[in-house]
Simulated scan of single mutants.
Amino acid sequence: MRPNASGSIPVISIRDLSKTYVIGKKTRVDALRGVSLDVYPGEFVAIMGPSGSGKSTFMNLLGCLDRPTSGQYWLAGKLVSKLSSDELASIRNRLIGFVFQGFNLLGRATAMSNVELPMVYAGLPKRERESRARKVLTLVGLGGRLHHKPPELSGGQQQRVAVARALVNGPSLLLADEPTGNLDSRTSVEIMGVLQALNDQGLTIVLVTHDSKIAEYARRQVAFLDGRIVRDEPVVARRSAQDEWAALIEADAIESQRQTQVKEETP
């Protein structure tokens, strides 16, 4: 593992990572081919690439949801291949927060109950679970929706609940797999604003997206093709979701004022 210029040790350090799937008796699919990458504390990295490029396989390996065929992966200074199944489960629950495209919320449970779920698995007492859940839901702007269930929330609000759930155990790393994939463009700006704000507070984020526009909210872009990294560079003209959201609100106010004026002038 190589410290960066400030002396920080990578949250993620990968060397020559490969993943081969064997289908049937003879078919081999090389999903990843010798990938090496470092991600340092406080980075916001967008993983890009077309379908079949290896980005989803890469995300599964980062999240310790699968094991590589070869290569080495250090997570928060620990060599993942040396960890037992119980240690991997503990890391997934404590060090990594997951946000998925499909929200993965319990439909009959409140926002509070959905966010408390990882803490139930961790064995935390009820009072602490409730305190933490309330805190992170407020952090993502849902302090007034604590007892609403998913069907009572918009798509953007449901994804905010999913983000809160990912944050509740205080992870070092947030993995977001197509977090705006089921959202319209306006709501996507809303969610990327939440992620940018969290990153500004120091949270390390790795986001998978096929949308180059969404990748422009990150600080760094890593492009995959045919199981290899073909581009790794900083985002020069980074989009600000906060500024874009403010512009949308202003446009709404102007349109509302225009419609009111039209009604008043109509005989």
Rank of each mutant, 00 (worst) to 15 (best):
Glu265Cys: 07
Leu17Trp: 00
Ala246Pro: 14
Gly7Ile: 02
Phe58Met: 06
Ile12Gln: 01
Ala89Ser: 14
Ile249Gln: 12
Gln72Asp: 09
His147Leu: 14
Leu65Gln: 04
Leu75Cys: 05
Gln221Thr: 03
Gly181Ser: 13
Leu153Ile: 06
Ala247Asp: 13
Val194Asp: 12
Leu198Thr: 01
Ser6Gln: 09
Ile254Val: 12
Val45Ala: 09
Pro41Ser: 14
Gly202Gln: 13
Pro179Gln: 02
Trp74Met: 04
Ala247Thr: 03
Asp200Gln: 11
Gln221Tyr: 02
Trp245His: 10
Ile9Phe: 06
Leu173Met: 03
Asp211Lys: 04
Asp184Gly: 13
Ala223Glu: 08
Asp177Arg: 05
Pro50Phe: 02
Ile249Met: 14
Thr138His: 08
Glu265Met: 11
Ala253Gln: 14
Ser56Asp: 14
Leu207Glu: 08
Ala76Phe: 00
Glu152Pro: 15
Tyr40Asn: 10
Arg132Ala: 15
Asp184Cys: 15
Gln261Ser: 13
Gly156Tyr: 00
Glu250Trp: 03
Ile229Cys: 11
Arg2Cys: 12
Glu190Arg: 02
Lys19Leu: 02
Val262Lys: 11
Arg239Ile: 05
Ile214Glu: 10
Ala166Met: 04
Ala5Tyr: 04
Ser13Ile: 01
Asp16Val: 00
Glu178Ile: 04
Gln221Ala: 13
Pro68Ala: 07
Asp66Trp: 00
Leu32Asp: 07
Glu250Val: 06
Pro125Ala: 10
Val235Cys: 15
Ala251Lys: 10
Ser131Leu: 13
Gly193Met: 10
Phe100Lys: 02
Ile12His: 00
Glu250Tyr: 05
Asn199Thr: 04
Gln201Asp: 15
Ser212Trp: 04
Pro10Asn: 08
Arg186Asp: 15
Gly71Thr: 00
Gly155Asp: 11
Asp200Tyr: 02
Gly202Pro: 15
Arg2Ile: 09
His147Cys: 12
Pro41His: 07
Gly155Leu: 15
Trp74Lys: 00
Leu117Tyr: 02
Ser85Val: 09
Lys82Met: 03
Asp38Gln: 04
Ala162Ile: 00
Val39Asn: 10
Arg220Tyr: 05
Tyr217Asn: 08
Thr69Ser: 11
Gly193Ser: 11
Leu83Ile: 02
Phe100Tyr: 06
Arg33Ile: 00
Lys149Thr: 12
Thr20Phe: 04
Thr204Phe: 07
Gly227Lys: 00
Asp200Leu: 07
Arg129Lys: 08
Arg67His: 10
Arg129Pro: 15
Lys149Pro: 14
Ile9Leu: 13
Ala46Tyr: 02
Leu105Ala: 10
Arg160Gln: 07
Glu244Tyr: 06
Thr57Lys: 03
